[in-house]
């Protein structure tokens, strides 16, 4: 389980940003999580609550925006949003494609804070 170490990195980055912004209190951290990121949402939420204790993020909530995988088919020149992560193929022609447009994100988008 590496969600705990992911949560540590997340909190480190967000805490630094909060300090620089002179935030009095951080209300929420918004994260974008791709279906191929290898990170499990629930495990990350759980780890977050443990890791934020005694940090500038204490009491804040983690908002996770989940992103599905989007692949590109060069034959059809179309993008397909995949329903899961077990079949990488074009919606239109059904051919397999390995060109991933979206789905690997593991990114802090924003902080909501009061000053």
């Amino acid at each position: 389980m590496h969600e705990l170490s992911i949560a540590h990195s997340l909190v480190e980055i967000a805490s630094e940003a909060a300090c620089q912004a002179n935030a009095k209190r951080v209300e929420a951290v918004t994260l974008r999580l791709g279906a191929l990121s290898g990170v499990v949402k629930d495990a990350l939420l759980f780890s977050y609550d443990i890791v934020i204790e005694d940090t500038p993020l204490a009491g804040s909530r983690l908002q996770i925006e989940e992103l599905p995988v989007v692949v590109y088919c060069p034959d059809c020149d179309v993008q397909s949003t995949l329903p899961g992560v077990q079949q990488f193929r074009c919606d239109r022609c059904g051919r397999p494609t390995a060109q991933i447009i979206q789905g690997k994100e593991l990114e802090i988008i924003s902080l909501e804070y009061t000053e």
Partner: peptide, 10 residues
């Protein structure tokens, strides 16, 4: 309340 844009990979 303010929003700070970060867009930073973990």
């Amino acid at each position: 309340t303010r929003i700070l844009d970060l867009h930073q990979g973990i």
